[in-house]
Amino acid sequence: MATVIFYLTAIVAILAALAMVLSPNAVHSALFLILNFCSVAVLYLLLRAPFLAAVQVTVYAGAIMVLFLFVIMLLGAEKADLGSEPVGWQKPVAILLGIVLLVEGGFVAYRGIRLPDMTAAQANDIGSPITISSVLFSKYLLPFEIISILLLIAIVGTVVLTRRDRAHLREEA
């Protein structure tokens, strides 16, 4: 059962990712990326990480992608960019290098990793919110605090970057 769900969800995730890259309309790309994030959240559930699955749906598929869609529609930048190619050989080279990277990754995935697969009982509670929070607030307390500062910096940076110039505004008025 778990195997069937894994392969179905994996196919949906790969197809959504391909459609995201190939779609000429940026809004369609964003919607396909949301589909990809949701299918990866299903995979998190299969990996017994229910907390991360919830965070994935709310933060990634919810907050971040809404921000993307908001900016795309604010700028009206959903038009195709596929026609403009100043460097003609770029696309074939990129696809060739991508295939090389995929072969390397596949080789590592099938030959390089020798991790024992734990039994279900051992891995059962590692993804619960209680376990995650106890690790987060003890072993990873300092990174957690640094993340809060990073988010504050991001807020200030966003406000500074998108603020219009004072002098420029006065000229317009």
Binding site: I14, L101, L102
Partner: peptide, 13 residues
Amino acid sequence: VLLSAILFTIGVV
């Protein structure tokens, strides 16, 4: 890990 490598490659391309 193989699925992760495939998704990563699509992102790189």
